[in-house]
Simulated assay, not measured.
Amino acid sequence: MICAYLAFTDTGLALAKRLAAALPGSVARCGQDGTSLAEWTGVQFVQSDALIFVGAAGIAVRAIAPHCKSKTTDPAVVVVDECGRFAVPILSGHLGGANDLARTIAAVCGAVPVITTATDAHGIFAADEWAKHQNCIVLEPERIKLVSGKLLAGQPVYYWADIPVTGTAPAGLFPAEAPEKADLALTLCPTGQALHLVPRIGVLGIGCKRGTSAETLEAAFAAFCARHGLAVQAVTAAASIDLKQNEPGLLAFCQAHGWPVRFYTAAQLRSTPGQFTPSPFVQSVTGVDNVCERAAVLDAGGSLFYPKFACSGATFALACRPFAPDWRWQNG
């Protein structure tokens, strides 16, 4: 987590430096070295994962107000009084991690973490906080309130999980009979009206003909996702054979999605254990019988989830990194 501290006084600056020694981040004092409250906030709101204001909460609220957009993208914001008595998360408590950050800061300086989110106040399971701890993305953040509202009202929430979750489900959560009947679903392939939490564990293996354009790859990938009902957000990286490392279309396609792409030699791919879809033609061209499946599995260090899919001169396969979700939803 990239942290940025801003103090309003010299006393606050001393505390900010103390906190930064334990939780590293940049430290500034408002009014010194040309540091403007508005300019600092604007820059750090984009560059940092967490903003920690040491001083009055009202000043911090006014500073961040013009920049707040969405709970899915806003950074965590925590205010600590300059005496170090209270640590108050005021933005992105769950998805941004401000609640956890406030607890950590409190432990460093002996403060009281002042957590005001309703689920935390009542000790009730928070789906969005759980998603963050499990490395999942929340597909429909507007549905969080529906799940939380049911739990706060004492109503049952039914969940579905494609991947077994260890431990005991929190109070109020019960297994659903089918994905379509779930209020909450942990899945790579969302369906129905549940609040879908998608694990960020997928590696896309890619094979393609020379000169395949990014647009062709994009269309083929859309067909691959449609075939399986796969959420695009499940994919975090891509992999292929080193013969493709200078393919402009493949590189542009991966860059457009923000995926790091890694390339492996034919020997590395051949040594990948598992059962794969063989192709004599691919073997004759690349020196290995399958590129997309082997590359995905090798890079993921896990298992093949969806086998080879061919479309418009491109092939895709999906492998998943090891993933062992559990029902814990708070640190400590």
Rank of each mutant, 00 (worst) to 15 (best):
W329T: 01
S36R: 12
R29S: 10
S26T: 15
V61K: 02
C292M: 03
A56K: 00
P325C: 06
A252Q: 14
I64C: 05
A300K: 05
Y158R: 15
L152S: 06
R328T: 12
I241F: 09
L146W: 05
T272N: 04
W40M: 00
R294C: 08
R294P: 09
C292Y: 03
H257E: 02
D100I: 02
P307L: 04
A266Q: 00
I137G: 10
E218F: 04
L184S: 08
D326E: 06
A182M: 09
A314V: 10
A20F: 08
W259P: 03
A310L: 13
F174G: 02
G258T: 02
S26I: 05
V138A: 04
F174K: 08
F125T: 00
A319M: 11
A76H: 08
H122L: 12
T72K: 12
T187V: 14
M1L: 14
T265P: 01
T277N: 08
R85M: 13
K17W: 03
G55N: 02
G313A: 12
F281G: 09
G211Y: 02
F86I: 13
D242N: 15
T265E: 02
D81E: 09
A176C: 04
G42C: 06
A185K: 10
G58K: 07
P89R: 13
R200S: 10
R328I: 00
A266D: 01
T277S: 15
T168N: 07
V235G: 02
I52M: 05
A238H: 01
T11P: 00
E82V: 00
V291G: 05
K150H: 12
R200Q: 15
S92R: 10
T35S: 01
H67N: 07
A111H: 06
R62M: 13
T286M: 05
T117R: 11
L13W: 06
L195A: 09
D81A: 10
T286W: 01
P199T: 08
I64A: 03
W259V: 03
V288A: 02
L6V: 13
R262Q: 14
H196N: 12
W40D: 01
A50F: 10
A87N: 01
C254D: 08
G42Y: 00
A153P: 02
S303F: 13
P199C: 11
A169Q: 06
P260V: 00
F309M: 13
T72R: 12
V114L: 11
A50D: 11
C311S: 15
K145P: 01
A238L: 00
N135L: 05
L146G: 11
R262T: 14
A317N: 10
A56F: 04
L298E: 03
